[in-house]
Design a protein around this nucleic acid. Structure first.
Lengths: 132, 132
DNA sequence: CGGTATCCAAAAGGATACTG
DNA sequence: CAGTATCCTTTTGGATACCG
């Protein structure tokens, strides 16, 4: 399969990220993950989504939504009313992305105990005083 | 299911990332993805892995490997010989992580054409001169 | 060979003020 | 309400030099 060729996933000739890597970056980015998970449930208005996620600045939410919209994952529905009302939802492509991300998120959650144990073992194995 | 609670995946009380989010960050990080994909094939020595991935600095490869080792994904086997020889391979947990990441990577690759089309449509719809 | 330590440039990200 | 524009801080990451 094509993905087995690791070099394909590294830098492009110009020193930037390859196209597929950019998409992966967008959907797994700090806020991208949370936007996809939230919108998978239902559509949200901008401020509503901001409250739902929590801790995200206006700037970053705007940027994340625009990136995902450009990538064809998010649909933006701006109603021409005053005050402005904009609804965000997932496209077909976005639903697929959200499903992938959710799968990864659920694996992470399932295996978190194993990771925590590994960390404790790792930290203890080189803790100061362990050999005195 | 637990992951549907988006708030659980956002910031912790101290303003940092929640534990599961940190793990996800590690396995989907720029070099973490490439390390997992490479080591899924076979084990590598440090310099060998560095060449295989390409474009990664010593510092970042070291950092990535240490993070993944601490998380219990990567096994580090340092042979006490001169010159030093260190082999890296995936643990059981790491193999699971690699499988998840590969699945996401393959989806990205499959759907890249749709993303590219979406981007073109997006860019063209607000290209200067489209309304003059 | 396989790292560590340090320094510095670049990029990400938050706070604030302002606009349609 | 839903952004945009600007500034500034924090984080990331690469280059270099050195060590076991």
């Amino acid at each position: 399969m094509a993905v087995s060729r690791v070099r394909q996933w590294t830098l492009d000739s110009a020193g930037g990220l390859c196209p597929q890597r950019l998409v992966l970056e967008h959907v797994t980015s700090r806020w991208g993950v949370l936007v996809l998970l939230a919108l998978q449930e239902r559509s949200f208005r901008f401020s509503e989504l901001r409250r739902e996620i929590g801790g995200v600045s206006e700037k970053m939410l705007t940027q994340t939504l625009q990136t995902l919209e450009r990538d064809g994952m998010v649909h933006r529905d701006a109603k021409p009313v005053i005050p402005p009302r904009v609804d965000y939802s997932l496209t077909e492509l976005g639903q697929e992305a959200a499903a992938q991300v959710r799968s990864l998120a659920e694996w992470t959650e399932r295996r978190l105990p194993a990771v925590v144990r590994a960390r404790e073992a790792y930290d203890e194995s080189r803790a100061p005083g362990s050999s005195s």
